[in-house]
């Protein structure tokens, strides 16, 4: 499935995902055109760059006011602190700054918005099946849109087993040994 560059006839090897006005926009470019646009083809996602690009787009869209003054109720880290350091301060930061972090995380993880895979047994963190199904549906649609058929097939399988009224919460997503432990409701 070779895709042509949006701007010339060469093969597109770079996909740029932009979040504009809350909508995802993808561009497919060849390396030369990407370089011409100043898109660095990097071997590693650099949080600093990710943030810079994100902030630039946000302010361009005039949405930055929302991000200002947001502070974590758990540790006092502000979104501005995070922008500066690239690290969050505590687990609660994710909930406190979810509206700001959500799009950023989506961009860092190729459009993924929800966790899929292993879940802890403790702390009542039972997998929220409805949530998971919704996340899988969205990711499946994205995969189809992006013509990632192998990924789409895998997601479809996962979705099927998640939707099946299985006795155990579908956990084939994470191969692991599940030994019942003391006091475990199973």
């Amino acid at each position: 499935m070779k895709r042509k560059c949006d701007r010339c006839d060469r093969e597109a090897t770079v996909t740029e995902v932009l979040i504009k006005h809350g909508k995802k926009v993808e561009r497919h470019l060849c390396e030369q055109c990407a370089a011409g646009e100043g898109i660095a083809v990097q071997s590693h996602v650099n949080v600093g760059d990710l943030l810079t690009n994100f902030i630039v787009q946000q302010s361009g869209a005039g949405e930055q006011k929302a991000a200002k003054g947001v502070t974590c109720s758990g540790c006092g880290t502000s979104f501005a602190d995070f922008k500066q350091r690239g690290l969050l301060g505590c687990p609660e930061c994710y909930a406190s700054m979810e509206p700001q972090l959500g799009p950023l995380i989506e961009r860092a993880h190729e459009g993924a918005t929800h966790h899929v895979g292993k879940t802890p047994r403790r702390s009542g963190a039972a997998p929220d099946t409805r949530h998971r199904i919704a996340a899988l549906r969205k990711q499946l649609q994205d995969a189809i849109d992006a013509e990632q058929y192998e990924r789409a097939a895998a997601l479809r399988d996962e979705l099927r087993s998640a939707e099946a009224p299985a006795p155990a919460p579908s956990d084939d997503a994470a191969p692991r040994t599940r030994r019942p432990i003391g006091g475990d409701p199973q």
Binding site: H44, V45, I105, A108, H109, E110, G111, A112, T113, H114, H115, V116, G117, K118, A135, Q139, E158, D172, A173, A174, P175
Partner: peptide, 9 residues
């Protein structure tokens, strides 16, 4: 590079 939205398997 990405750790969200794809299972370990």
């Amino acid at each position: 590079q990405t750790t969200l939205g794809k299972s370990e398997k």
